[in-house]
Write a protein that binds this DNA or RNA. Structure first.
Lengths: 129, 129
DNA sequence: CAGACCGTTGACGAAGACGTAAAGGGAAGC
DNA sequence: GCTTCCCTTTACGTCTTCGTCAACGGTCTG
């Protein structure tokens, strides 16, 4: 009933190499079950991997992504939770900074886009004629 | 009249090491003038460096940042400009993807924040009494 | 003129994130 | 039973991004 994957299947589906998958496992980001010696990935593993890849697209290191994944472990004692809350809020703050950088970059590129577009339009004023 | 900087000055002001500055130069991201053998950075160099650092905060490699900086060279023939326009639009598309990733992450973290907060509040229902 | 400070180049080192053979196990088909 | 295919581990290689000496040059100061 439940969808399962081998390394190669999951890797291909998400556009990475099996080597990367194994590497993430060594680094403690994934822990798929084994059948005999072979890795078997579940839907949960797949979801976790997608979080990993999203983290990479955001420019995080594997160590940072590891810490990020830990934030999904909401269980724990009061002290644990206080600690977790702090870490979550720190991440949110970092992401806010990143959003600012992102938007500033987008603004500038859009401005360039306009400049170049109009410059090109001025140079070849034939389309409207 | 114009503000100038040595490697050490500029590095300290922007919170990086002189070594990094020289490295960016080797990689073709910066090209400060020389007085004798010594590097002299202008305001323009400084601005360029700030773009570099912003790129790093967004998770780009130095090679990507190099290409990004090229996008600010708006001059050139028609063919150059068409090409530039394409590259700018490609970047904008990538950045849109990154924004989606960013916002998805923020949403999830905020949800976790709420969960943990309420969980903590439920456990110690004394503040309101 | 001897130190004390910048600043320079060059070389070596190191961590992160994999790529790439090398060598082998287990099942499936002919 | 042998080949083929998928998977495994181990190990070494590579590229990036600097950190860290080492050895040297110029300038200013006492």
């Amino acid at each position: 009933m439940e969808q399962l994957y081998t390394v190669n299947q999951l890797a291909e589906e998400l556009g990475i190499t099996p080597r990367a998958l194994r590497f993430y496992e060594v680094k403690g980001l994934l822990a798929p079950n084994r059948v005999g010696n072979n890795r078997v990935y579940t839907k949960r593993d797949r979801a976790r991997l997608k979080l990993i890849l999203r983290g990479k697209r955001l420019g995080f290191s594997l160590a940072e992504i590891r810490e990020y994944l830990d934030l999904y472990n909401v269980d724990g004692g009061v002290e644990q939770q206080r600690n977790l809350l702090k870490r979550v809020q720190k991440r949110l703050k970092d992401l806010a900074q990143q959003r600012e950088d992102l938007e500033a970059t987008v603004r500038e590129l859009k401005e360039i886009e306009v400049q170049v577009s109009t410059s090109l339009a001025d140079r070849s004023p034939g389309k409207d004629a």
